[in-house]
């Protein structure tokens, strides 16, 4: 016991993931655990919230509080638990079908609020757990191997949607780069406001288009990797003056333009970041001085409401 107590928590648990060999989920799982360990967070002060699908099982494999919720509803749940206890570090995870299909409304509206938590989407273009149907990010004309015909619905642009929905930290990661992703997650968690990372990942069983080999550019004549780091090109995603609307619009425009870069070159890293008041800040402005930063789980019963009764007389 003593040895274990001295050891820094590694957020590992004694449960074996039942994901397929070669799944991108492993890279994301490792990156999340690594990020939590690097930040030296205490396991009991972290809650990982997930939706449904292969990625939904993630909380079972991380040594924190974990909530494996409903399909598409991780964000509303995360909103509730964060507002109940602001001292928790809350990380919501889910798949692309979960977040951009059945949960699309919550994805958009969570961006409006800017609560201080992180949302990580495992984006592989398919519904894996239900055996490979097209997800909302699969582009028009693509046909993965379990589809009987090519897609005639277009794919959405998660980065563009996040930017226009008001997310204050918008990034794209790559599952097969766990070290880079871990660093990105640390930045996201430390960001004050809702941080969003769309993580590109292969589904080795059902997505035979965006494979590891494809991301690595093995099919290209020059054999160049498709994925590249924005920072290597000197891309600057940060709004310096949040009161400057022109700067915000300009930064959003270049981020949006970058988000459409696809095919031979796929940028990863932070695309947009701004420091804006959080939802919690808004609540504090409404509160009487005494209860700023209130942890709602500590609200006591027997609130004296006699002062309110006057309005009924």
């Amino acid at each position: 016991m003593a040895v274990a107590e001295l050891k820094r928590p590694d957020f590992k648990v004694d449960v074996r993931p039942d994901w397929c060999p070669g799944c991108g989920d492993f890279g994301i799982l490792n990156a999340i655990r690594q990020a939590l360990a690097n930040m030296r967070l205490e396991p009991h002060n972290v809650a990982v919230v997930s939706g449904i699908g292969c990625s939904g099982k993630t909380p079972h494999y991380i040594g924190t509080y974990g909530f494996h919720t409903l399909h598409g509803r991780a964000l509303p749940f995360a909103t509730g638990i964060k507002l109940a206890n602001r001292e928790l570090t809350v990380i919501a995870v889910g798949g692309d079908g979960d977040g951009y299909g059945i949960g699309a409304g919550y994805f958009v509206n969570t961006g409006r609020r800017n609560l201080d938590f992180t949302y990580i989407v495992f984006n592989n273009g398919v519904y894996g757990l239900t055996k490979g149907q097209a997800s909302p990010t699969l582009v028009r004309g693509e046909q993965t191997k379990s589809m009987s015909e090519a897609a005639i619905q277009d794919g959405i642009n998660p980065i563009g949607l996040a930017i226009s929905s008001g997310y204050t930290f918008v990034a794209r990661g790559y599952a097969m780069d766990p070290r880079g992703l871990a660093k990105l997650i640390v930045d996201a968690v430390r960001h004050r406001g809702t941080s969003f990372i769309d993580v590109l990942q292969p589904c080795p069983v059902y997505n035979d288009k965006q494979t590891v080999e494809w991301y690595m550019g093995r099919d290209r004549e020059d054999k160049q990797r498709r994925v590249y780091q924005l920072i290597e090109e000197g891309f600057d995603p940060v709004v310096r003056d949040p009161s400057n609307v022109d700067e915000i619009v300009q930064k959003k425009q270049i981020a949006l333009a970058k988000s459409y870069e696809w095919g031979d070159r796929i940028p990863i890293g932070v695309l947009f970041q701004i420091d804006m008041p959080t939802f919690e800040d808004g609540l504090d402005l409404r509160r009487p001085d005494g209860s700023k930063g209130a942890i709602m789980k500590q609200a006591a019963p027997y609130q004296d409401f006699s002062s309110v009764l006057g309005r009924f007389r």
């Binding site: 919720t69 509303p76 749940f77 638990i81 507002l83 206890n85 409304g105 609540l283």
Partner: peptide, 27 residues
Amino acid sequence: QFPITILQAEDEIACINMAVGAAHGGA
């Protein structure tokens, strides 16, 4: 006047899941 957060959500599915989250969170 009171330690209560009122959140007007985007739909009733969000409403119930936020409330379940807050309940699990101790509120």
